[in-house]
Design a protein around this nucleic acid. Structure first.
Length: 271
DNA sequence: AAAAGCCCCTGGATGC
DNA sequence: TGCATCCAGGGGCTTT
């Protein structure tokens, strides 16, 4: 579930509270996507300076080094004063002077990785090919349109790919295309300037509204304070197969694109 | 280089 | 109630 809004909401919910905290100990549970290939001594005694986000990655800036965290499909973070005993799906604990940061991830597609800086081979492998930040100042219509035109696959797939624009996952790709009135199967290379403008505006609109609403809680997402999100209540097409389109009342359709579900309205998304 | 498929893993919903 | 099947928010890796 964690797409850009959920990751950003998570970041906002604990970044200030953890800033300046000293790391006291670390606990690693079951293996995540990659091993944390350093010992606790590399982290203990350091301080968490800031928490940043790049795409769907969280970057915890330490005195020396960066802890990269990814929530995968089912991950969530909690940050609390007093830590309880870890549950079956709590796979990473960072015990700090200001509270316990804990990663819960049933499916374990998430990851915690330590890198010395953002230019190490591993950091570059993970972050180096990421596209523009949709809520950042570098997200310009011209560059967006140019990036899309270079791709030959369906616009939905290109949005998901993250090489043109980051953070747009399955829910928000569906919602964004609906808002822009664009057919999900349209080849990205055929996007017109007008369509790119609509998609650009829709992306910013959908993602920023989702952040404001605390993200989408479909199953069990919550921010680091345990609070749920409410964007799912405003979804126009995602998860609404067969229900009437909120704009034209035609039944919302479902199809598969790259082994993922695409929800769309055949009437509103014609171009 | 880009595109398409294949996995990683677990839990919940659905169907028989 | 029990068991099998399908599906789920991501994305790196391998193969075309």
């Amino acid at each position: 579930m964690p797409e850009l809004p959920e990751v950003e909401v998570t970041r906002l919910s604990f970044a200030n509270a953890i800033a300046g905290a000293g790391i006291e100990s670390v606990r690693v549970g079951k293996p995540l996507r990659w091993p944390l290939d350093i010992g606790p001594e590399r982290l203990v005694g350091q301080h968490v300076r800031a928490v940043r986000r790049r795409g769907k990655y969280l970057l915890l800036d330490l005195d020396d080094g960066i802890l990269l965290m990814h929530l995968g499909m089912s991950g969530s973070l909690s940050f609390s004063r007093h830590g309880s005993a870890p549950g079956a799906h709590d796979h990473f604990d960072l015990v700090t002077s200001q509270g316990l940061l804990r990663l819960n991830d049933p499916r374990r597609f998430g990851a915690v990785v330590f890198v010395d800086n953002e230019t190490t081979p591993q950091a570059l492998k993970l972050l180096g090919k990421l596209g523009m930040e949709p809520l950042g100042s570098d997200f310009a219509v011209g560059a967006f349109h140019a990036g899309l035109k270079r791709r030959n696959s369906a616009i939905k797939q290109v949005l998901l790919g993250g090489q043109v624009v980051v953070g747009v996952g399955n829910i928000y790709a569906c919602e964004t295309l609906f808002l822009a009135g664009i057919r999900p199967t349209l080849k990205a290379s055929r996007i017109t300037r007008r369509q790119a403008e609509r998609l650009h505006a829709a992306t910013r609109d959908v993602l920023s509204r989702a952040v404001a609403l605390g993200g989408s809680t479909l199953r069990d997402f919550s921010n680091a304070k345990g609070e749920n999100g409410y964007f799912q209540l405003e979804a126009m097409v995602y998860g609404r197969e067969g229900l009437p389109c909120k704009v034209c009342a035609a039944p919302v359709r479902l199809m598969r694109q790259g082994q993922r579900s695409t929800y769309w309205c055949g009437h509103c998304q014609k171009s």
